[in-house]
Design a protein around this nucleic acid. Structure first.
Lengths: 339, 339
DNA sequence: TTGAAAGCGCTAACAT
DNA sequence: ATGTTAGCGCTTTCAA
């Protein structure tokens, strides 16, 4: 069943059928109806490969997710998948390791799958105009923005929270509860990624609260492996470091950190308060329940798709949307009791 | 950059390049290397639309996952994504709600995206020949098999664990630790899904161990929502039920259950042992560490792709592979101390 | 408003 | 072992 069959059936030319198919204006209403009728009756479905070949565009939207084991990103992918599908596009998901280069992966994917656009999840914040030239389709950074790069604002879109501000907010929450010796656990403060930004927020909060930064209270894990976090916190405790609270830059890290603290006999929150940023569903079921700043995952994802689609369809221009987190108080933060 | 450019660059014909591209035998090693070199140097990427058009088949493999919030399935999807891509196919991921009909969803998807085959994740165990007629491409059931349906064994493939046996094994582990009053938490014992099978294993274990089944110790949540599990366990405790151990049919449920027990003042494992089946990474970081039977996620996914690809490429026939779990002892199960 | 025809990039006969 | 060539189903000039 091809366009030819429809043409023959209607006794018109294939170009006429093609015009109807693509909603071109120059078709008489009578013929248009006739063709539509035939399409319905014969259960004709256009061959997407042929369409893509000739128009050299597919229906594919790429989602490149860095950090395969990040449960927060998994929850975003669920929403992205649904939204992309609902709008008539196809999601091409590509998950890469945290060390991998998402721009290069996207560029490959763009050519392989003829992507119409790309949504990046959990990427670096330091893209340069130069490296982005590899990508010729519009893209949206979801969960981050190009803080450290030299991209022009009108060259890309982003949907994210104010990571630095939110981290500061988290630390202030601890300070408000009387804490002065606050540790932090993150992957790497120089990776131009979410870790760096949230760490900057941590530093800024300390400064603004009149607290000294003590490098001995910074736990660097080098990656996002939970085992590394666990080991890192154990090492921190072994070092005899003096702290009463901990900021984990993500919920997943917090869960591993709480485990380490508990295993080493530190009660949470009595001996050590813990706060994080993300808002996983799982974090509601940690013991104790994690206090965390929840990112609006659903909206983050939905907005990303909306932006990209409007870019693809030419009905919108590049925008940068910042969203708010919502504090979800758990039981992992307690007021510091003076010794 | 097309196949022509490569041909011209190498001074060979397009068919030779095509042969190299498709790993056809009739190419001299010298030319083969030459072409590969050119492809690399010129960053050539074959046009999938053109390939699909001429061979009238796409490169798409559908993955239909039921249970969008199941973290175990998320981990499978990661592996599937990688494996499918590595073999030169494209993963079309479709996540549907637990209540939705995966067969119908797959049938839709098959036509829309010209799927070559489908991998089902977390589906029902009771497909009928009749309903599967909607699907005209080969499919593999990953994590389950058609226990309750009437599918002929040679009409589909599956990769799974022996859910009933494994559940029995889990219960026996508790019994071996002295437990006699063992509760179970699951979604629904009649859903022809994984819950039902594991519940049957629970029942069978009780029988074989000479223990009575007490309906009062069965917590049914109706769905996989963690909040429902939490509430269910609380209700169980409120009912004054007498039990010293609990089987959760999945790690995620166990995490919520442990939380409920802990919140209600029951120490795990001192007052109540907990065991589960799945083996999430997260479960290593619960307090206490969850004792669980780990499914071989990586192999489960890899084998599914391998089976489907061999089916698609006509080099294999339908098979049913059963895998073993591995007990990962945590600290959530303790020997019962006689009162 | 409609039709004829030239490709889009590739694969697979078929020919050499 | 390699080249020539006819399409795959569709869109899009260009001509009528």
């Amino acid at each position: 069943m091809t366009i030819k069959d429809i043409a023959a059936y209607c006794d018109v030319s294939v170009s006429t059928v093609s015009r109807v198919l693509n909603d071109h204006p120059d078709v008489s209403p009578a013929v248009r109806d006739l063709v539509h009728e035939a399409i319905r009756k014969l259960h004709y479905v256009p061959n997407n490969s042929a369409r893509s070949l000739v128009s050299s565009r597919s229906t594919a939207i790429g989602v490149v997710s860095r950090g395969v084991d990040n449960p927060f990103l998994s929850s975003l992918i669920r929403v992205l998948s649904r939204e992309i599908h609902d709008r008539g596009y196809t999601m091409v998901l590509h998950q890469i390791a945290t060390q991998a280069d998402e721009v290069q992966a996207a560029a490959m994917l763009e050519r392989e799958k003829k992507l119409l656009g790309v949504i990046f999840l959990g990427g670096r914040f330091n893209y340069t105009e130069d490296e982005l030239r590899q990508l010729t389709v519009p893209f949206v950074c979801c969960t981050y923005t190009n803080t450290f790069g030299d991209l022009r604002e009108d060259a890309y879109s982003s949907v994210s929270i104010r990571d630095e501000d939110e981290a500061e907010k988290a630390v202030r929450y601890l300070v408000d509860h009387g804490h002065r010796r606050i540790a932090v656990v993150l992957d790497d403060p120089t990776d131009s990624s979410i870790g760096q930004l949230r760490f900057q927020g941590y530093r800024r909060a300390l400064t603004r609260c009149g607290l000294d930064y003590d490098p001995a209270l910074t736990v660097l894990t080098g990656n996002y492996a939970l085992s590394a976090v666990y080991d890192g916190i154990c090492a921190l405790l072994d070092s005899g470091a003096d702290f009463t609270a901990l900021l984990a830059i993500s919920d997943a890290l917090a869960i591993a950190a709480i485990k380490a603290l508990t295993d080493r006999g530190r009660r949470v929150p009595e001996d050590c308060s813990v706060i994080a940023i993300d808002g996983l569903e799982m974090s509601l079921y940690t013991v104790p329940t994690l206090t965390t700043l929840c990112q609006p995952a659903e909206e983050l994802a939905r907005e990303s798709v909306e932006m990209l689609v409007s870019l693809i369809e030419g009905t919108g221009s590049h925008r940068h949307k910042l969203m708010e987190t919502v504090l979800r108080p758990g039981a992992s933060v307690a007021r510091l009791r003076e010794a």
